[in-house]
């Protein structure tokens, strides 16, 4: 399954380049830390993110509550850690969905060509230029806010980049000798696509996934901030900022803590995605 296209080099080459890039490592470290924090939230900080306490409301940072408490007296650190789960879950699921559906559309367009390709390409251009946030907002406003609908909405906003990145190599791959040979041997289109084309464009699709995961998490946070996120009391970073913003004058840490969490996570993903792209894309490498 080693890379066969002209644009890709043997697997060892790009992993080596990725490892040699210090900023990629910072990205990896941040993402691993966020994942661990999300998975082991209850062990790291065993307070209940949903437990309210009227006497403890809007308390500043203290040893019992390192990041203070919110307007319901809930521990902000516990909410922050548990919110990481929701953000990562929605981000990863929506990207997986966008990756599967978007790549399938792109591969179909590239492989079939003709009017189907033309129609899909112009539809993608519209989708690509439409503001991500407004499209997500429209879809969630129509479907209603829930985890599933958020995943669907964010996936729709990110179909186009995957379709684009899968379409271009499909066009060049379908006329390559090894695919022609397969066709001469009587392999079905499905087999040619699944066995011979998909493995060769997978690495490029994965790079796009790592770059767009950052956007997915940002979109989820933005929708939650607008009030179209997962329903309270479930903690999400965007939702926490929304609640904190209402008390910005008395308790600024409520909005700042989840804001920093989003920023650091997105920065980590961007560093990781950049590192992967620099390592894999020969055009960028030339710089």
């Amino acid at each position: 399954m080693s890379a066969t296209t002209a644009s890709l080099e043997p697997a060892r080459g790009w992993t080596h380049r990725f490892r040699a890039n210090p900023t990629s490592w910072i990205g990896v470290a941040i993402i691993v830390a966020v994942i661990l924090a999300a998975v082991f939230a209850s062990w790291i900080w065993p307070l209940d993110p949903l437990e309210q306490s009227v006497v403890d409301r809007l308390m500043g940072p203290s040893p019992e509550h390192p990041l203070g408490t919110d307007s319901y007296g809930r521990d902000v650190l516990a909410r922050l850690l548990h919110a990481a789960r929701i953000s990562l879950l929605i981000g990863v699921l929506s990207i997986a969905l966008a990756m599967a559906v978007g790549s399938a559309i792109g591969i179909a367009a590239g492989y079939l060509g003709g009017w189907f390709d033309a129609a899909v390409t112009s539809l993608l251009d519209v989708l690509l230029s439409f503001p991500t946030l407004l499209l997500g907002l429209m879809v969630v406003a129509m479907l209603g806010p829930s985890i599933e609908n958020l995943v669907i909405a964010i996936a729709i906003t990110e179909l186009a980049p995957f379709a684009r990145v899968a379409r271009a190599p499909t066009i060049s791959l379908k006329s390559r000798d090894f695919v022609e040979a397969g066709r001469a041997l009587g392999f079905s289109d499905l087999r040619l696509v699944v066995v011979h084309i998909i493995p060769n464009l997978l690495s490029e699709v994965v790079v796009v996934a790592s770059l767009w995961l950052a956007t997915a998490i940002r979109t989820e946070a933005s929708l939650s901030f607008i009030g179209l996120g997962v329903k309270p009391p479930t903690p999400t970073w965007g939702g926490m900022i929304r609640e904190g913003f209402e008390n910005i004058l008395d308790a600024p840490w409520l909005a700042v803590a989840p804001g920093v969490a989003i920023m650091v996570t997105v920065l980590g993903l961007n560093l990781l995605g950049d590192g992967l792209r620099d390592a894999i894309d020969p055009k960028v490498r030339r710089d």
């Binding site: 940002r218 933005s222 900022i241 913003f245 700042v256 804001g259 961007n270 950049d274």
Partner: peptide
């Protein structure tokens, strides 16, 4: 520039608001 691209607009807006307005 990478940090700038990582800031959701509403987070940076809140930070600016806190620092320069409040």
């Amino acid at each position: 520039s990478l940090a700038g691209l990582s800031f959701p607009a509403f987070v940076s807006a809140i930070l600016l608001l806190l620092a320069f307005a409040i």
